[in-house]
Simulated assay, not measured.
Amino acid sequence: MYIAKIYVTYKPSILDPKGESIKSALHRLNYETVTDVTMGKYFELKLEADAATVESTVQAICDQLLVNVNMETYRYEIEALEVQ
């Protein structure tokens, strides 16, 4: 069994309105050292797959469902889970 931790954010060329709102609020709270905020999505998937297919499965899930590939980019980490 594996766990995939998937991080999704806007591509650098796409305006992140929620991130900009958070940055503005932080500046109003006198956190002027914050220069950029990126807001994104986080997913955890548990997969019962073999080592040869787990990475391609995660990529397919991201490309087909979790990520708008026109506006967003993603990265993931896959960890093997010990079955008890």
Rank of each mutant, 00 (worst) to 15 (best):
E32K: 12
D50Q: 09
V67P: 01
T33R: 13
K5H: 06
V54T: 01
D16M: 02
P12Q: 07
A80C: 06
P12N: 09
S24F: 14
S56H: 08
D50F: 03
Y76C: 07
A49D: 09
V34A: 00
K23S: 00
K18H: 14
A25M: 00
V37W: 08
D36M: 07
T33H: 14
S24E: 08
D63H: 04
C62T: 08
K41R: 08
M71N: 09
I22A: 00
C62D: 00
M71A: 13
Q59H: 08
C62L: 00
A80E: 12
K5Q: 07
S21N: 12
I22Q: 00
V37E: 04
E82H: 10
E77Y: 02
K46I: 15
E77N: 07
V58Q: 04
Q84V: 15
A49F: 06
P17W: 04
L81E: 10
L26I: 02
L26K: 01
S56Y: 04
Y10W: 05
V8Q: 02
V58R: 00
L66H: 03
Y7K: 09
Y76D: 01
L45Y: 03
A49S: 14
A52E: 14
T38A: 12
M71T: 07
S21C: 14
V69G: 10
A49H: 10
T9Y: 09
D63A: 07
L29T: 01
K18W: 06
G40Y: 02
L26D: 00
N68D: 11
N30Y: 08
L81Y: 05
S13T: 15
R75V: 04
Y31I: 09
E72W: 03
G40A: 14
S56Q: 05
L66Q: 12
T57K: 15
V37Y: 03
K18D: 04
D36F: 04
G19N: 02
Y74C: 03
N70C: 11
L66G: 03
P12S: 02
T9W: 06
K41T: 00
S24A: 14
L65W: 08
L15P: 10
T9R: 12
I6N: 04
R28Q: 09
E55L: 05
